[in-house]
């Protein structure tokens, strides 16, 4: 039990049995329920799920920030290998040590580039602030580094951008600045929470390309949170699908997309329009029946059963599935995955 889940392997982060419970006026909400996963050094893990699936909360928990917006009880273990080589459990760090992790070991970019930057400070001061918080350096050196970062982000006129205020920049530019802020202390993990959702499609592609380029240069790992499976396929090495606070399937991206085992993943993939695979006449894009369950009234058994076409009464609505291996590096949480895979399920 006490042996570290990341000792002796190449994991950067190992999350075990993470649970986040919020106390809300309407009652306790289990936003994340017993999730375990690893992030390897330098890899990109996509965390896929609909809004309300707990993916953002799980990601925030990695930085000890899940409880900021309310009273939260966080259980489980979040082992993190630090840059210096030793490791820690993020969930048991003091507030002071947590601040050393944030920005320095793990950095984060958010969905809304419009509101991610403080409107009263210049771009320069917001990058410099991140640098000086974690490294002992002169103001001039920090400015030079900030300029270099903006250059690296492919910003056309970095010197002008430095002295700009956020409202003077476009959405794409702001997200580039945010990435520069995140990268300023060379973190070993970048958590990207839907970083392109609020952007135009063309800008979206630029940002994704930028993230990939930066990753090859710095070798950092990326936890990419998205509801967009196409994007996940494009950027990630591995994918993990969450539903109603639980992990339902995880594996290498190619494997998960080619052989999805969980009915939820299957239906998610079928609801995706694909380029280069024209629809046959009369074939429709599939929509998932029903709605995402409310976090307050989570269905019994497998949380997906009310929307699942393979649901069997007395089974799926009573027994919660355990996570089973269904292939090399591929895991699924479904009671009937074997029958479904063999085509025997109706």
């Amino acid at each position: 039990m006490s042996s570290s889940p990341i000792a002796g392997n190449d994991s950067l982060v190992a999350v075990r049995d993470l649970a986040v419970r919020f106390a809300t006026p309407a009652g306790p909400v289990l936003a994340v329920d017993g999730v375990s996963f690893d992030i390897m050094r330098g890899e990109t893990l996509a965390l896929v799920g609909e809004s309300g699936s707990g993916k953002s909360t799980a990601a925030l928990a990695l930085m000890g920030m899940a409880g900021l917006s309310g009273k939260a009880a966080i259980e489980g273990r979040i082992a993190l290998r630090l840059k210096k080589g030793n490791e820690c459990d993020v969930n048991r760090l003091s507030a002071r040590d947590l601040r050393q992790v944030r920005g320095n070991e793990i950095a984060m970019i958010f969905q809304e580039p419009m509101s991610s930057l403080n409107p009263v400070y210049t771009v320069a001061s917001q990058i410099v602030e991140a640098i000086t918080e974690h490294t002992k350096t002169t103001s001039a050196a920090a400015h030079a580094r900030a300029l270099e970062l903006l250059h690296m982000m492919g910003i056309p006129n970095p010197a002008k951008c430095m002295i700009s205020y956020p409202h003077q920049l476009s959405g794409g530019m702001r997200q580039r600045v945010m990435i520069a802020v995140a990268l300023s202390c060379e973190p070993s993990l970048l958590v990207a929470d839907e970083p392109t959702t609020a952007l135009d499609v063309t800008i979206q592609a630029q940002i994704i390309a930028l993230l990939k380029r930066v990753q090859t240069r710095t070798g950092m790992a990326i936890l990419f949170i998205t509801h967009n499976l196409g994007l996940a396929a494009e950027i990630a090495d591995r994918a993990m699908v969450m539903y109603a606070g639980r992990m339902v399937e995880q594996g290498a991206v190619a494997e998960v997309f080619r052989n999805p085992r969980m009915p939820y993943t299957q239906v998610l993939l079928r609801s995706l329009p694909r380029l280069g695979r024209p629809r046959e006449p009369g074939q429709k894009l599939e929509a998932i029946p029903g709605n995402v369950p409310s976090a307050l009234k989570r269905p019994s058994g497998c949380a997906f059963h009310p929307r699942c076409t393979f649901m069997v009464q007395g089974q799926c609505d009573e027994h919660a599935p355990v996570i089973e291996s269904c292939g090399p590096g591929h895991a699924v949480a479904c009671l009937r995955w074997r029958e479904i895979a063999a085509g025997r399920a109706a």
Binding site: M65, R99, Q100, G103, F110, S116, A130
Partner: peptide
């Protein structure tokens, strides 16, 4: 607002986030 979370994610202390990031916007 989001930039408060961003400031915390940078590793700034609660005090610094309150006084440097929240205060100037709230005082306007």
């Amino acid at each position: 607002r989001m930039f408060i979370q961003v400031a915390l994610a940078k590793g700034l202390s609660e005090w610094k986030v309150a006084f440097k990031h929240a205060l100037p916007n709230a005082v306007l």
